[in-house]
Design a protein around this nucleic acid. Structure first.
Lengths: 241, 241
DNA sequence: TCAAGTTGTCTAGTATCATAGACAACTTGA
DNA sequence: TCAAGTTGTCTATGATACTAGACAACTTGA
């Protein structure tokens, strides 16, 4: 493997990403010993100090642990996140044996642009409630979400959410007994400073960007949201047929 | 917005990513003029030269175009890629008005590890055909795929694929009339040197990693594959209910 | 016990990144 | 025509990243 020059990504970062990928796809299993620093330096054709910096970065994030005189060992795992018609963060995280938590960052008012208006079946310029929240599993931030609801249909939704800390409960408060996922769009990006801070993620890490709209049992749009997931902490499962 | 220090990502790269994100999520529409270099420098709190380097990187990738004395303008778009039960690369790309193409990189033999054996319903160590291919839309590489098939059920599949250049046709050659997607797992990573070269992508860009298994009409597994998509060129659409 | 292999910690030298300022070349609209 | 605003190019300087080499501290297995 050879490294790319002047890509705007430091060499040690490229090495760290390479090793992390090896951990993610199972080439380096959890608990296993990584190759020695000299060997890694040779395979990536960089100086041993550069490898050490890469390993230090991974160690700081808790993915590996160095043992002097012995070697460097892997410790990691990703949260499985099924994308079903019935997608509830708390249920998914809870099913994985982790403790789900939601935390309100900010609630405010907004106005529908063309895209949101189309998703929610509203007119452009219609008043909206915007809720920004971060969701955690066992105190590890998993994603940050921006959620939009019609301010007419859900007046004062911001204050309600601040009390109940759950989208399901919020909708229940307005008489919505059940809802399901109508559409989901996924792509990836690089975490910007805001996301990075909220996700407790170093800048430059990949995030999975998910745009989704939930509808009620009559297929009437309820909420639309954009979530940014720390890619290194989740793995989406799409179940077809 | 403030930049993060010593993340292993150069400042100009962070600025470039920020602008690219603005293009991706529509803050900067195609054809529109970006803010002036001085203004960008102020919002990101970096030197104008750093902004210029960021813009140069985006220009090289064809996302923006600078016009001396006038401004810098956006030009970009992402390929919509629906993840349905019936997922066929050529149909998706063709439907978007682009010309699909597949290109064989390498075909060889392999042996089933635990994961592949489970996906394909084979025993560990069972003989496999491994096919590496890159898929393009209008000569732009979209993804690289590694596909595994049972060597017993599909003998000589590598040579067949080299002739037909299509997974659908390959399966048809063995009497498989129709098939559909059984499972899809998505996560994101950073492009390594191999991916970067094959996708004509600078190192360090995010890729969407998709693990998928296709089954026949009797739900018997046919092929399992791992694809890596250039995240900046596609947007997955998950359609539920 | 000892040799080989591992991670930890120094010292340097070179290349790249980022900032700062100045000015040229060009476009646009008044 | 001209002023204001834009991108293009140059010089210079300090900070950081990367390489190179040496050796210490520690673990493991023969």
């Amino acid at each position: 493997m050879s490294m790319q020059e002047s890509s705007g990504v430091a060499l040690w970062r490229q090495v760290a990403d390479g090793i992390e990928r090896g951990i993610a796809d199972g080439r380096f299993a959890a608990g296993e010993k990584l190759p020695g620093e000299m060997e890694i330096a040779e395979t990536y054709r960089v100086n041993r100090h550069t490898v050490r910096r890469a390993l230090a970065a991974l160690a700081e994030r808790g993915l590996v642990r160095a043992e002097r005189g012995s070697g460097t060992y892997v410790e990691a795992q990703r949260l499985a996140y099924p994308l079903r018609s019935r997608t509830r963060f708390s249920e998914i995280v809870g099913a994985g044996g982790h403790e789900p938590r939601g935390q309100l960052i900010e609630a405010g008012e907004d106005i529908a642009n063309r895209e949101i208006a189309r998703e929610l079946g509203l007119k452009i310029g219609a008043p909206l409630i915007r809720i920004e929240a971060v969701r955690l599993a066992d105190r590890t931030p998993i994603c940050v979400s921006t959620t939009w609801l019609s301010a007419e249909r859900f007046p004062d939704a911001g204050h309600v959410f601040a009390n109940v800390h759950s989208m399901t409960k919020l909708l229940g408060h307005y008489g919505v007994k059940d809802y399901h996922r109508a559409s989901t769009r996924i792509t990836a990006a690089i975490a910007d400073a805001t996301d990075a801070a909220r996700l407790d993620l170093p800048l430059g890490r990949p995030v999975l960007v998910v745009d989704a709209t939930d509808v009620d049992m009559l297929d009437q749009p309820l909420v639309t949201k954009r979530s940014r997931f720390a890619a290194e902490r989740v793995e989406f499962l799409v179940e077809n047929g």
